[in-house]
């Protein structure tokens, strides 16, 4: 299963035509990041931040998040090596992030955002006392859930099924099969 999934970095893709802008994906993402349900996070006053963004442009709303690039610019520029290619994903280590924002600037998708350190899964306080440090954060593909055989939280939360996890090899294979079918049907070949 894991091998199949990680044949190339998968990523989450949204279908704007199905999206009803309910923001469930964002709440689910924040809860997954906090590793607890929303209600508990609010009671325990754990700051919540989603790693995905609902963007509306030209009257179309689309969910945007990290594409887990194979040659990720963020990973190349990080001065601390906090971002690296991990198994099937681009991993960001918030523990050592210094919040220099370089990754944020070079990301072609705007997928990296700044969150309070407490709001990250890593938790922990700030060494600056009251002032909470900002660190970079982004979609981690819900790796913890994937290895348990579960879908990423945003996909599971979407009531209109507008999100899919694109697994590049499978996606391409499906395209090939469909195109072949279209072609031989177009040529009038029937089996």
């Amino acid at each position: 299963m894991r091998e199949q999934i990680f044949s190339g970095n998968p990523f989450i893709l949204a279908d704007p035509q199905k999206c009803r802008h309910c923001h469930s994906c964002r709440l689910a993402c924040a809860a997954a990041g906090a590793k607890m349900d929303l209600a508990s996070a609010l009671v325990q006053k754990v700051p919540l931040a989603a790693r995905n963004s609902l963007v509306t442009v030209d009257e179309v709303t689309m969910l945007m998040q990290c594409r887990h690039c194979e040659d990720a610019p963020c990973s190349r520029v990080c001065p601390l090596g906090a971002i690296r290619q991990a198994e099937g994903r681009v991993e960001l280590n918030k523990e050592i992030c210094i919040g220099c924002k370089t990754c944020m600037m070079v990301c072609p998708f705007g997928a990296i955002e700044l969150v309070h350190r407490q709001a990250t899964a890593a938790g922990g306080g700030s060494q600056y006392g009251e002032r909470q440090a900002l660190v970079a954060d982004k979609c981690d593909l819900c790796y913890d859930r994937l290895i348990q055989g579960k879908q990423p939280a945003c996909i599971q939360a979407c009531p209109t099924h507008s999100l899919v996890m694109v697994i590049p090899e499978r996606w391409r294979q499906a395209h090939l099969e469909q195109s072949a079918r279209d072609l031989f049907r177009g040529l009038g070949i029937q089996k």
Partner: peptide
């Protein structure tokens, strides 16, 4: 629905529906 769970969705008028975002931003 997270907004419903937290009581944060308002449909009491037609300027809405509105919801308060429980997330940071």
């Amino acid at each position: 629905c997270g907004f419903g769970e937290l009581g944060l969705c308002c449909r009491n008028c037609l300027m809405g529906p509105c919801r308060i975002d429980p997330l940071e931003n």
